[in-house]
Design a protein around this nucleic acid. Structure first.
Lengths: 272, 272
DNA sequence: CAGTGGTCTAGACCACTGG
DNA sequence: CAGTGGTCTAGACCACTGC
């Protein structure tokens, strides 16, 4: 019984024909996938349940046994699907307790996507960052922003500017662009009042889970306004960190440009 | 038969007592591991074979069946050990062919650890980098270098300076520090004559495999000598990329400081 | 104690590679 | 074709959590 279509005993999802749909691979060009292992199909189904909101951020998903019964496969197959979602940080396994939907809240190392650390090793010595919202306004997407957010030009977007300080010293100036539709109702007040990572607010208030991001990093000089906000001169080199953050299915949901002051902090990266 | 010591049927490695040795975890403080799964112990044995040179760079290691027989465990257990080494990029699986020792040579995307890409998407459009060795000399480790390379102060080190150009434009200035002992015999000539990634030369000529690295990134201004070598003014902001590269067992084997020109290139990073 | 994820096994079969 | 890694199953037992 090699890779038979799954009779999805729930919801309305069409059974994935075994020799058809894409197994999400990056081999590109010519070669047809032509074969999708069962656990990959299960992975797609789990992804759908995550995306549809069937399972909330931070909540437990059904046990491996339950899922195995639901999809009519062995526990080992469900396990392999969950394993991959766990290494992608979409799910979190906790032995003895269950498997949970990953979240940007509660994440004791808050700011999961922020790679800036103080020179004196300990990220906690400075305490939490002080956040100051400079601006939050509606505008229309420039050609550049539209392209990066998969929008049409001039579509409405929300634009946020804020400064993060560590030990009372302004260190990061961020400009954000968000598609207006999913974030309807976001204001400077709600941003200012919320105590926690911005991505956690996005999850709980707007149901948008940031799952993955890409950053392009350059060395730049600030313009006079940026220099003022960071309290540095216009000749101080800064790290420009341009991030595009994605939800499920690689849908871009945020474009963010950060200017990092790196005299007492550094951007950390690990290579394998 | 829960996690019984392995009667290592080869070499001289002592059998790892089941309730003793560290499973290489980062939980730190207080908590004793107290339990090491079989596949983790297999992983350690595989690591030893890699480190000892029993399996050469780029060569195939024994089949999963063979390893299962050698260690007297099931194929699935060997599989899980290899899986982890593969995700850490120490091994490369190739269906139908075997499992191979990862190498910096042949890696069609040469420069595995270089995250700098041209703005116009395609990394191949510029062709291979032009390399120019500026200097290669023996010296003694400063306190800073010694600390980063786990050496004693003033221990002999090799120091290399080179410039990488893309499309004939100088783009990267690198300073390297290597512990002298493992790299005895390295000269500017050998570096200049070698056609391929430097880490590939380290593998084939000195048996040193770089397995992992950490980078600290900052925005800086070049001093006059650096500016000259890159052909820019002293007010051009540059990316400072300080890398420490490690072999097996987290032994540091290289400290490298790169200055990247980021007007037509960017440093790319992926977040999960 | 029951329920969860984690480990280990044994065996069958599939997909891919190369001679 | 034989040999390799890849998938899938079924079952047993272990480690951890919380009641």
């Amino acid at each position: 019984m090699p890779t038979e279509p799954i009779s999805t005993s729930s919801l309305t999802s069409k059974p994935l024909a075994s020799e058809s749909e894409s197994p999400i691979e990056m081999t590109a060009v010519i070669a047809t996938p032509s074969f999708s292992p069962l656990y990959q199909q299960i992975k797609v189904l789990l992804l759908q349940s995550l995306q549809s909101g069937e399972w909330k951020s931070g909540a437990a998903i059904p046990s491996e046994q339950d899922l195995a019964l639901r999809y009519k496969v062995s526990q080992g197959t469900v396990r392999k699907a969950i394993d991959e979602l766990a290494t992608e940080n979409l799910l979190v396994r906790r032995q003895g307790k269950g498997t949970f939907v990953a979240t940007h809240a509660e994440h004791h190392v808050q700011y999961r996507f922020l790679k800036l650390f103080p020179d004196n090793g300990d990220p906690n010595s400075e305490g939490p960052a002080q956040r100051r919202i400079i601006d939050c306004k509606r505008s229309r997407a420039s050609a550049d922003i539209a392209k990066k957010l998969d929008l049409r030009s001039a579509e409405p977007v929300l634009q946020v500017r804020r400064v993060l300080s560590f030990a009372s010293k302004p260190t990061i100036l961020e400009d954000l662009w968000l598609p207006a539709a999913p974030f309807k109702g976001l204001t400077a007040e709600r941003l200012g009042n919320y105590d926690g990572p911005m991505y956690a607010l996005f999850e709980t208030e707007f149901g948008v889970r940031m799952v993955r991001a890409e950053e392009k990093i350059r060395a730049v000089l600030p313009d006079s306004e940026q220099a003022l906000l960071l309290g540095v001169s216009s000749t101080t080199p800064l790290l420009s960190v341009e991030r595009i953050a994605y939800t499920y299915n690689d849908v871009p949901m945020e474009m963010r440009r950060g200017l990092y002051l790196t005299d007492t902090h550094y951007y950390r990266n690990e290579l394998h």
